[in-house]
Design a binder for these strands. Structure first.
Lengths: 129, 129, 129, 129
DNA sequence: GTGGTCTAGACCACG
DNA sequence: GTGGTCTAGACCACG
């Protein structure tokens, strides 16, 4: 379910939150679905339980998951909507990157080609067509 | 010349390097131009001189500026070329963001519109049309 | 692992980067190997942690080591290749020294003998034959 | 007589000492020859007189020049011999560089070729044949 | 005045 | 425990 790179620069807890959010958005997990317990996931990923705990707390505070004491964690019903709203903020990030690319002399076409590539292909992350 | 947000999670020294690189790419500063001395900038931004020093060292090692002990720092002649090469990497960042937006159900058109907006307008950073 | 001369004019942090690079090239340390933590090395060498940090940051930005916050630092897989490329620049330094030696009346033979000595013998650094 | 690069990483005073030593070794200046006064050289090179003073003090303490108050500075009679002795130390620097190059997998032949190039050609510094 | 190095010590995020 | 950032303040070489 998760793939962790312990040597990555992005913190492990962040890799987890990011991947779970991706799973929610892609429909791989649905509202109401249970997610692994802190303990089981920490064993599976061979990470410190505190790290998993931090990831789950983060997701909880964002409204993505809900942890029910004694019962476990599950995806909240409005998880997708929340993430959709967040997604729009990423458009601003793209605009900001475009501004820098424009200054660097990169053409509009080159960027649009990159955007279209993502939407035309069912690329797995990082895969070359 | 610089605007620092001491409460941001991006380190102060990184805010400085980023902003100076933007100034170079936008043509606001040109090769050969002097940049503020470590001490004067530290006074102006109310940060520790070491923090400025770290930013300048970073820029020096990247080939953007040249620090001449006893004289000051200035923009290197090939600064723009170096940054242009780096800029291409930002396209990958855009692709990654697009992948997430695609999952979130954002349409290709919406993103392309945002890209075109940047290239069509002479937007000042952060300005709304 | 390291020998520091605090009275040398070459900065402590540079003595460290240089020695670690030598250890990589000599095969004394290998890709994936961990290197001492910032704190432990600072205690061992009786220097300030910031000085070690600076050395490690430098090595990180050169691609020799990778610093993983919360985990430690280790030798990167491509460390040797990077250093091999850098090594070629040292040939220019030798040419420059030769020019001065030529002016000083030192014969070509004498220098070539010195070069051959290094390659023929398994000299430990600084050992006289 | 001197060519100074004010933006170079090597201090101006060191550029001066180095160049004067080269002039002595190449025979361009001879024992007993006068060298420019501090004031005239500082005007000519557009540098701070203190910088010239520092260079001359350095050369004086090494026994290369002698300054006679009220009369000026001149090359000492034993200047060449002193520099010849110093030159031998440069062979050690070459050996040290060779050790690193050996570790980096650079061949003996490649280095010897570089050495021979210097001795076979009357290359001006930095000139390609 | 300029940049560069270093120490001492604090605080942070991460695991 | 780990590395990373930052401040305060000292001292250095260079010009």
């Amino acid at each position: 379910m998760f793939r962790i790179d312990p040597l990555s620069r992005t913190p492990i807890y962040e890799q987890i939150t990011e991947q779970l959010e991706d799973l929610v958005m892609s429909g791989a997990v649905s509202p109401g679905d249970p997610i692994p317990s802190v303990r089981s996931l920490s064993l599976q990923l061979k990470t410190n339980p505190n790290t998993i705990q931090k990831a789950y707390s983060e997701l909880d505070s964002r409204g993505i998951i809900s942890s029910v004491p004694g019962k476990g964690c599950y995806i909240r019903s409005d998880a997708r909507q929340i993430l959709s709203v967040c997604a729009r903020k990423k458009i601003d990030e793209i605009s900001e990157l475009c501004r820098k690319l424009k200054l660097a002399g990169i053409s509009e076409e080159e960027i649009i080609t990159a955007v279209k590539d993502v939407f035309n292909n069912n690329d797995v992350k990082g895969e070359k067509k």
